[in-house]
Simulated scan of single mutants.
Amino acid sequence: MAKRTSLLGPAVAAPSPREPEPERQSAPTTLPSSAARSGGKRPGKYHLGAYFDPADPTAEAFRVLAARTRRSHQDLLAEAISELVAKYEADKQFGRV
């Protein structure tokens, strides 16, 4: 029986030439305000969320609802928050009309 050789053998055996790493700039001493930060995957948006116990029946019902309706968690949360704001008339109470 022939001896098996790894496909990675040539890549592992031959040392790769390394290019010198560019000099790193030091981090700024002051952090930008949250409004000025544009990093992340969704520029112009902010995260609104919470952490729940996986055994919480409400959290479980939410996951099942998302799966059965084939809607994203973001879509369902946006609808729920909109209804909550309307229920308490928060847009009027806090000056947004």
Rank of each mutant, 00 (worst) to 15 (best):
S16G: 08
R63T: 07
S16L: 12
T58E: 15
P54Q: 12
P32C: 00
K3E: 06
A55L: 11
S33Y: 00
K87Y: 05
T5R: 10
F94R: 11
A13D: 10
P54I: 14
Q74F: 13
S16I: 03
L76F: 03
A80P: 02
A67E: 10
H73R: 14
K92A: 09
M1T: 14
A27M: 00
P43R: 09
K41I: 05
Q93Y: 08
S82E: 13
L7Y: 10
V97G: 13
Q25I: 02
G95R: 01
P54N: 06
A80V: 09
A80R: 07
G39W: 07
A11W: 15
L77F: 04
S16T: 04
Q25V: 02
T29E: 05
F52T: 01
Y88E: 14
E21P: 00
A86F: 04
A61W: 07
H73T: 09
A13E: 09
H47A: 11
E79Q: 14
K92V: 09
T69R: 13
R24N: 00
P15C: 03
D75G: 03
A14L: 06
G44F: 12
G95K: 04
P17T: 13
L76Q: 11
D56C: 06
R37H: 04
E83A: 15
R18W: 03
A35F: 01
D75C: 05
L31Q: 04
T29H: 02
D75H: 09
I81S: 05
H47W: 10
E60T: 14
Y46L: 05
K3R: 11
K92Q: 12
L76C: 05
S38C: 02
D91C: 05
A36H: 02
P32V: 00
S38L: 02
P54T: 15
A90G: 08
P32D: 00
E83I: 11
K3W: 07
E19W: 07
K92S: 10
F62W: 09
D75V: 03
K45E: 11
H73S: 10
A86I: 12
G39P: 01
R68C: 08
R24K: 00
G39S: 07
K3F: 07
R68Y: 08
L7S: 09
P10C: 04
F62C: 10
S34I: 09
D75L: 07
K41H: 09
A86P: 02
V97T: 15
K92M: 06
S6K: 06
V97D: 10
T69S: 14
L84A: 13
A13L: 12
S72K: 04
P20L: 01
D56S: 12
Y88K: 13
D75Y: 07
F94E: 08
T69D: 06
K45M: 13
R70T: 04
T69F: 03
Q74R: 15
A2Q: 06
R68A: 03
P28W: 00
L84D: 01
